[in-house]
């Protein structure tokens, strides 16, 4: 489906004691179904606000956000969230962690859902660890558990808020590959925010470059690589060219403001 996620001139104001801050201004962009899109922008430009708006945790001041042609309202279960840290609950086993969402939505007796949980664990090499506590797992495995926990609620759209920034570089590259693989295999639409251009490049089909605050769309770059995985894409000859395009687009802005 074309334009699965749509932002139509969305603005958002934060209220603080001293003033009103416009975090997002007339933001318009779209992401197609099963596409992996990334938002890059200077730090503090309101990337996380955009994710919260998409998740329905914040309501736009003006404009509208559509997912599959339906307006995003509060609490309608369309999106899954992945954070900078995995936020696994230490007092729960891996199995209890991934079924957390089912438990909350009182679906944890549903044999179909439980079978799905088992299937995902087996598919992604975590089945043997289902009775372990999160602290017994490596950083990369924990991030995978967090992803499966999110997938369990069958979100139409995955939101990734710099989900790898807490990992060391080597793990990061590998987990990146891993998460990308899972998202593609499960055929999910994903929206990643990152300030790491190469990470965004290696994972995305589309990159949305934002201006500094208030965030609006500066440029949308559709990518096509011969390489298939994030790691292979990094070796692609196009990679450097794309990097430069996006870097230019970002730094133009910075020079203007400074």
């Amino acid at each position: 489906m074309e334009n699965f996620l749509q932002f139509n001139s969305v603005s958002y104001f934060y209220q603080t004691k001293d003033n009103e801050i416009q975090a997002v201004k007339d933001l318009t962009f779209s992401v197609n179904e099963n596409q992996f899109a990334s938002i890059v922008g200077p730090s503090g430009c309101g990337k996380t606000t955009i994710l919260s708006l998409t998740a329905g945790l914040l309501t736009p001041s003006t404009g509208e956000i559509l997912i599959g042609n339906e307006k995003v309202g509060k609490h309608d279960g369309k999106v899954g969230y992945m954070f900078q840290r995995d936020h696994l609950f230490e007092w729960r086993t891996i199995w209890q962690n991934i079924t957390l969402g089912l438990e909350i939505q009182k679906k944890n007796k549903d044999p179909k859902k439980l079978a799905r949980a088992e299937e995902l664990l087996k598919k992604y090499d975590l089945y043997n660890f289902r009775n372990k506590k999160p602290r017994q797992l490596s950083g990369g495995m924990r991030q995978r558990v967090a992803l499966i926990r999110t997938l369990m609620l069958e979100p139409q759209l995955l939101l990734l808020d710099e989900p790898f920034s807490a990992l060391d570089f080597q793990t990061r590259l590998l987990v990146c590959d891993d998460v990308y693989d899972i998202i593609k295999r499960e055929q999910k639409t994903a929206l990643l925010v990152s300030h790491d251009i190469s990470e965004a490049l290696s994972m995305s089909d589309r990159i949305i470059v934002l201006s500094s605050r208030p965030a609006c769309t500066k440029q949308v770059v559709d990518l096509s690589f011969e390489g298939k995985t994030p790691l292979l894409k990094r070796e692609d000859k196009e990679f450097g060219r794309y990097f430069e395009t996006i870097w230019r687009s970002l730094t133009n802005e910075n020079q203007k403001t400074s």
């Binding site: 954070f83 936020h87 957390l100 609620l153």
Partner: peptide, 27 residues
């Protein structure tokens, strides 16, 4: 308690009571 953890629970549509019982208290 970590705000992101609460956000996570909210994104799963947990009620305030569920947040208390499944996150705040065990935490």
């Amino acid at each position: 308690c970590d705000q992101d953890k609460i956000l996570l629970m909210q994104s799963m549509h947990a009620s305030k009571f569920q947040i208390l019982r499944k996150l705040i208290l065990p935490n």
